[in-house]
Design a protein around this nucleic acid. Structure first.
Lengths: 330, 330
DNA sequence: TTGTAAGCGTTATCAC
DNA sequence: GTGATAACGCTTACAA
């Protein structure tokens, strides 16, 4: 059924019917007639035709590196909750950590499909930036602080410093660091920067041997801890940049009869679900992932309201707070 | 830029340009001209206009009860991966377990927004069924076996029987059961049915006192285990219908100095990530969630190819296999 | 193989 | 306040 047939049934012109659906002026009598017809027919305007005419899709594209993780769905939930309140739906692109796919989706979404794009970035390359420049709808970046675009991100640098500060306050000086590749700005770069700066500020020598870089897998934490514990320079505490990595570290240490935290202390980041279930319970940093989704959505809504077509060089950054969760691994 | 301008630049008619994008017959020369213009302009056809004309959106709506869980994102990932191969994108509706929202989205999606709906159901009411009948695009249900619609689901009944069989094989007769409300067909109803039937088949008396029903929270497992252990009739083994609940049970037991599995054995279901990290490691059932997403997407693709407009009464069911993961809690 | 022309269902413009 | 009419950008008979 089209709006023409519907208007006929209601006994009004299609323009009046259209106005009714778009908050235009309609007389009380016409209103009544339309409501009646609505009950009878259950008519709903054709979305595609609407958005063809109005040039609005009420869709926001969300590019996710990997949806099947613990953090991504929480961010997505925040985005979805906030946007749905304002009548938007979300189109999800799960890129499986592939940069090519991220760029492909940036292009696909650009093609009149969505009113805006929320980009959950991990690695961030020049090619990303180049493609993003060509995008004709606002982009909000979540999870990384990109200067060129509005961003919502966790305060990784200070969280990391606080972790190290806390470790030092417990009397440690030989603090091992297990991180990830620096292409990941938040987890790889910022958290490492926090570690180094805090050591420096406390006049603790930075020993390259105590710094190991791997990937996000639990196994990476396991293997790098093995390396750490089998070298000349051994740590008395290990700072793992994610709980997952910390869990790997913990596994290696328990298997090799180190007592935690007496022999080696461990601290993670992210407050992953497992951190409460492993023994000993993991001291970690709690981030507000769902909140960051809500914030990113809110930022998008603002941009949309302001009618911006490209959010390039719109410097708007939202840095989210964190909380140290003291448990038993240190 | 519209296809008209683009065609002009390419030096062909707009129909030829359109045919080029839709695999119609185009002469090699015209092909060349279009390719050249494509490089120059980067033109992409307007999606909304296309789907208005073709009545195809290449969008599949996915209704998810709660995206921020461990299982839902894996199913979504499977769906997304499979559909994106075939040129479809997914529209996500996160309903937050609200039946009203589920029904609302069923209606919204029905409104010419998507070519099909994949419905991750938990509870399932008559109202769902009524609304689903009015839906004009194919629906595939994932996670529950609904007779009226094509479904992809886990073999909960037999998995549950296998769990109980396994517990019995370890010499237990007093087997406690911690389940959830039966409106959840898979987890609530089928897993309980498996428990009862297997006991019956082994001529073990079913004691109502040993059966406790709560919700999906860890805390529910904790409290119901407390009840179980403080009554006349105590279990020597506890079957929790999810790992989460099992983790709660385990927590209560450790806190109260029961040895696991010597004093009380525990077994869960779902092979959640925590099951490998808690002590002792949890014996459980492994399901293939991502696969079920892939299967559901495949089923949708089939229906779409067959051109069905409503999948009501299309009895197509895909029951997925499972695997018992033996660890140390029994 | 190509071009012409007629819609797809809606909203915006403009007289009334 | 209301109703005709012209777009929005595309695909697809149909005729050439």
């Amino acid at each position: 059924m089209t709006i023409i047939e519907f208007a006929k049934i209601a006994g009004v012109s299609k323009s009046t019917a259209s106005r009714y659906f778009n908050n235009g002026y309609v007389s009380p009598e016409a209103c009544e007639k339309i409501k009646l017809a609505l009950e009878k027919t259950g008519f709903q305007p054709h979305k595609q035709a609407q958005s063809m005419r109005t040039r609005k899709t009420n869709l926001i594209g969300v590019i996710v590196p990997k949806i099947s993780t613990e953090t991504a769905p929480r961010i997505v939930e925040g985005i979805s909750d906030e946007l749905s309140i304002h009548g938007y739906n979300i189109l999800i692109a799960n890129t499986g950590l592939s940069i090519e796919k991220e760029i492909e989706y940036l292009k696909i979404f650009n093609n009149n499909q969505v009113d805006g794009i929320i980009f959950m970035a991990t690695k961030f390359t020049d090619e990303h930036l180049k493609v993003m420049e060509g995008v004709k709808v606002p982009i909000v970046v979540v999870g990384q602080n990109i200067k060129q675009y509005p961003s919502v991100y966790n305060d990784d640098y200070n969280a990391s410093r606080d972790v190290v500060k806390y470790i030092i306050s417990k009397g440690h000086k030989d603090i091992g660091f297990i991180g990830v590749y620096e292409e990941d700005i938040s987890v790889g770069l910022e958290r490492k920067r926090g570690y180094m700066d805090e050591l420096r500020e406390n006049n603790i020598e930075i020993k390259e041997e105590l710094i190991k870089i791997g990937n996000f897998e639990t196994d990476s934490g396991y293997k790098l801890t093995e390396k750490l514990m089998n070298q000349q320079e051994k740590p008395s505490a290990i700072f793992a940049v994610t709980d997952n990595i910390a869990a790997g570290a913990l596994k290696y240490l328990s298997e090799n009869n180190y007592r935690i935290p007496e022999d080696v202390a461990i601290i993670g980041m992210g407050d992953s679900r497992i951190s409460e279930f492993i023994a000993p319970k993991l001291t970690t940093i709690h981030y507000h992932y769902k909140t960051s989704g809500i914030e990113a959505a809110g930022m998008m809504l603002e941009l949309l309201n302001e009618g911006v077509s490209s959010s390039k060089n719109i410097a708007r950054a939202q840095k989210l707070p964190y909380r140290l969760v003291e448990r038993n691994s240190i």
